[in-house]
Write a protein that binds this DNA or RNA. Sequence first.
RNA 1: GCGGAUGUGGCGUAAUUGGCAGCCGCGCCAGACUUAGGAUCUGGUGCCGAGAGGCGUGGGGGUUCGAGUCCCUUCAUCCGCACCA
Length: 900
Amino acid sequence: MEYNFREVEKYWQAYWAKNKTFRAEDNSTKPKYYVLDMFPYPSGAGLHVGHPLGYIASDIFARYKRLKGFNVLHPMGYDSFGLPAEQYAIQTGQHPEITTKTNIARYREQLDKIGFSFDWDREVRTSNPDYYKWTQWIFIQLFNSWYNPETNKAENISTLIPKLKGFDALTEKEQSDLLLEHRLAYLSDTMVNWCPQLGTVLANEEVKDGVSERGGYPVERKLMKQWSLRITAYADRLLTDLEGLDWTESIKEAQRNWIGKSEGTSLSFRVENSDDHIEVFTTRPDTIFGVSFVTLAPEHELVSKLTSPQQKNAVEEYITFAKNRSERERMADVKKITGVFTGGYVLHPFTGKQIPIWLGDYVLAGYGTGAVMAVPGHDSRDYAFAKHFDLPIIEVVAGGDLSKESYDAKEGKLINSDFLNGMEVKAAVKKAIAAIEEKGLGKGKTNFRLRDAIFGRQRYWGEPIPVYYENGIPKVLDEKELPLVLPEVDKYLPTETGEPPLARASSSWRKDGKFEYEYSTMPGWAGSSWYFLRYIDAHNEKEFVSKQAVNYWQNVDLYIGGAEHATGHLLYIRFWTKFLNDLGLIPVTEPAKKLINQGMIQGVSSFVYRVGTSNKYVSYGLKKDYETTPIHVDVNIVNNNVLDIEAFKTWREENKNAAFILEDGKYICGSEVEKMSKSKWNVVSPDLIVEQQGADCLRLYEMFLGPLEQSKPWSTSGISGVSNFIRKLWRLYHNGDAFAVTNDAPTQAELKVLHKTIKKIAYDIENFSFNTSVSNFMICVNELTDLKCNKREILEPLAIIIAPYAPHIVEELWHKLGHTASITYATFPECNETYLVETAFSYPVSFNGKTRFFQEYDLSLSKEAIEKEVLSLEQTQKYLEGKTPKKIIVVHNKIVNIVV
RNA sequence: GCGGAUGUGGCGUAAUUGGCAGCCGCGCCAGACUUAGGAUCUGGUGCCGAGAGGCGUGGGGGUUCGAGUCCCUUCAUCCGCACCA
């Protein structure tokens, strides 16, 4: 009887669900272990084969930890607020909640079929009011908090008020405005990334190359009143705490770059004939005598004031030009130098010399002070600007050739620099800062590249921000009023006056029937910034998580997900975790101790080539003779690059009358490796594989593909090897149709195979080397098959070590072996080293590093004895060709090398 | 430009961490069984060479008795950040 995976897998999946086999215990004496996957956004395309890669890995680890006696928390949920459901709603009018529910149901069905050991009783959905109630609650805590630089912690805003002089004398509005400057969630006029097509503001990390990450629409800069979160307050802690995390260096480095700490000094230049000062930030105060001009960002507030009448027109023209240049254009031609002279001057703080003030869009309004002291001799951007506008270049650090390029290196002796002359750069930096501070011109300062996170989105499908406006003053709701439920609207579009969709809610959607609520909703990352805490106590109606539960479960021990969240989600979740810790609500300062980024499974897209604008398609090999447009074609109607022409004709209405230019009677498609996505028609769903080969096969195959962290294009070409292995495993426990495991005592050889494998598998799992364990299972089963092993003492432990990888088949075998409880809570076998002890070793004997023959020696034999034995061999003499060996190296249990 | 990865048979990959390069699979070749089948089993399969043998881990150099592994250098590909003062 062949193994019937369909029946077996279905049976055990139902059994596990019914018996809640994977439930995590809240009051357990076992040590805890928390394994978390990045939860998915339930898209309409369903789960593709890339999703399970990380889920299978985490599931193997979770199952392994259970076998090792841990109380394992391994939950799953859905990040169910987001743009695609809303875009779909705009097109079809269908409520995003319905789309989301349908998609979730499909995801769940797909997940269930793969046999994951999730504790589904703890499922969370970020779009459920009982979940987002607490997202809103955390927002309120952020609103009610400020960051105290003295304690280096967030504190309740009430501890700030006594520090604000004259606060009581202010009007309510003035008080509100003042406090907003300190709150961790605040409303302000900010330059935002505005995406007209999406009708919303986007965060920096949602913008890639000047277009929106979702949809790829152009993004422009715009000044708007917006809610933001003061993540910059945590910049330093987010940076330093990276040290202690067991995350990959690339993610840590990406976060370091994103936070972008730079240490330098502020320095103010007095404007000539004025009391105004221009403050700059520099990391090279040592080059102060090399300043030959000052450049301001076009948006700088002093621009109009210091522009001379002669330059007025030119400056205004330039500002208009800079403003109309989109982010994308600006980024596209970074090399292009633009700028204008203002006609104004500042005075050098040490020499008193006149220094011209220029505008240039290479200076960013949002970083530092929006002004730089230009040192063209030692900064390549200033150099390029100076060359372009023919401004003086002064050498102040020796070592470069300024006629060719700027000398940016931070080493060399200072020249032309008054009191800094002759000093090395490092010493000069210190001395310059001291001199600047002494003269009261500025002081040492740290700048971060990290910007506050813009938190409002002018969209419908997100958490309503729990704020209302009373006389124009923003106020947060009382905890009792939560959740502020998303109201119904007639359309999911902005109003005619440009207000967000929530403004379409009926007029009764008012706080106490009179005050307007905030119409922006939260961004997609709000709900995912704390979800790991909700799984710990998913049904708590009184708190977001109880102290008791979070004290037991702490934070995530192993977090698995994609590297694309390096500077988005992974930064925000760290920020919120630190904030909640500051308030004393949770005992941890980081969400996850260990993070693994699984590689992306890419899709292999297929293309057909349309000739011109006709309805004719030319085969891949002949396309060079025609003018063609490549068009993505559904990979499911292409087999080995050969197009199923009939399927193509029915695939889309407009293909009905398509004509083809064939080669060898076939239509050959082109192919390319790309990201797996619905729009590229290259999505492969795991369903088909589960149906045809089984869940265990999918699990083993995805692991067998290669190292977890590596990206790879999806291909099923090797899957038969894995499915053969599963059948071979089944046959090991059977003789023909009969289950045939005996209680006979195993041989030494059999024990050795088993224990060797136990050792390797345990090592592999602990090192997340899942691909090598699959090949070790194959080796083990091949060897046991050769030994015709059918001993319980071997086959029982074997079932347990395979259990994390292929849980269905071994659960069946486990019960056939006579067990009544699930294999989930068996005990992972220990390797008994005594079975692995070898008594002899076949030494490779090499001459000058080249292996020539093998000779077996007892392992008890000493090096000297082996050396003597080897030299006496006839073969040795043959290879020595009569010469005397210069040296003989004998490495115990490894090698013999004879140097001639 | 800065930073992080990765380069090994026809393909996916492995190598006890400095000790026999190519494990486990896919593919391919040959054979067996056979009512021809995308089934199963057995054997072979890095490259060159008839063979002895030689050559082989992106290229070049170095350390070492010994290098895929360590050091220097160079090339290629992928990813992240980027006019950040």
